[in-house]
């Protein structure tokens, strides 16, 4: 499936970042790669280091010839301030490219919010203006604090599609093993008709349902011109760690194949940049 995407100003924002250098952290990082990560957030990371971010962190550490260590912290509001900001670690494995609170490296993967439906329903939703959305039960993750929402939630909000939403928590009691998976399970069980979920979560938890579930890119919404649905994800370091960022970028570039393999194993839906115009391929296998 080939989908056209808007242009990303990836070079521009990096050029604007202040060129502040700090040697101390880079030196520490050579001996020890201190990663701040969520202790319970698959497919990204967990304390047992089973997430794809854990695997990529191991790869980085081995390339840096550094010992890998973790500071575990729940990834919620205040995460950056309390981790990189408090100098408790040197790198955060996933931030949107250009994220202003950190210095983000060149992105190492590109994914998108996706529609998750049962393949045998043949819903093939391609637009938020599809009238069928008003008749479907739609599952979403409640993410932000008040006033903050996922892009699909906002797209539904501006259309007044509010009565048929089913909210799923990203958090749950310990009795619920993977609370983030519930919204995907609900589609598989037929409790809801469609889930609109961030790609890596959707791909990972949909994997076990094989061909029964269909993932399609949530399209860019013309009513929300400034709101992307796809995000390029980078490593994040302190804004003062320019040299360290460059070192990491070099490794990301050298290890592109291995990183892609890791992401594929976790069934992360990837938008793959191709040469020429910004046209991309979505891989949902």
């Amino acid at each position: 499936m080939r989908i056209k995407l808007h242009k990303c100003n990836r070079w521009l924002s990096l050029a604007l970042l202040p060129l502040l250098l700090s040697h101390s952290h880079a030196v520490i990082a050579q001996q020890e790669l201190r990663v701040c990560a969520d202790p319970d957030n698959l497919p990204f990371s967990n304390r047992k280091q089973e997430g794809f971010e854990n695997k990529i962190a191991s790869l980085l550490a081995s390339q840096l010839n550094a010992k890998l260590s973790y500071i575990w912290q729940r990834q919620k509001t205040g995460f950056i301030r309390q981790t990189l900001g408090a100098e408790r670690c040197d790198v955060v494995m996933g931030v949107p490219y250009g994220y202003e609170r950190v210095l983000s490296t060149q992105p190492y993967y590109w994914s998108s919010y996706v529609f998750v439906t049962a393949r045998n329903r043949h819903l093939s939703i391609t637009s938020f203006d599809d009238p069928i959305l008003r008749q479907l039960k739609i599952g979403l993750h409640g993410i932000g604090s008040d006033g903050s929402n996922s892009p699909p939630a906002s797209a539904l909000a501006v259309r007044g599609i509010t009565g048929n939403l089913v909210g799923y928590s990203m958090w749950g009691d310990a009795s619920i093993k993977n609370p983030q998976a519930q919204v995907i399970e609900a589609v598989a069980k037929g409790d809801i008709d469609v889930a609109i979920v961030w790609g890596p979560i959707a791909g990972y938890y949909a994997k076990k349902y094989g061909n029964d579930l269909e993932l399609t890119l949530a399209p860019h919404d013309p009513k929300l011109p400034d709101m992307p649905f796809d995000y390029e994800i980078s490593l994040g370091v302190r804004k003062t760690d320019q040299a360290f960022a460059e070192k990491l970028e070099k490794i990301l570039e050298q290890q592109r194949g291995k990183i892609h393999n890791i992401l594929t194993i976790y069934n992360i839906p990837l938008i793959q940049p191709v040469n020429g115009p910004v046209v991309s391929l979505m891989n949902t296998d």
């Binding site: 919620k76 949107p96 903050s148 990203m170 961030w198």
Partner: peptide, 20 residues
């Protein structure tokens, strides 16, 4: 002042935060 549209990334999912 409050406005939307600032990319945030919490608990493994990017979203557009309200900027206050």
């Amino acid at each position: 002042k409050m406005h939307m549209l600032k990319a945030e990334y919490v608990y493994g999912a990017p979203y557009m935060a309200m900027d206050m």
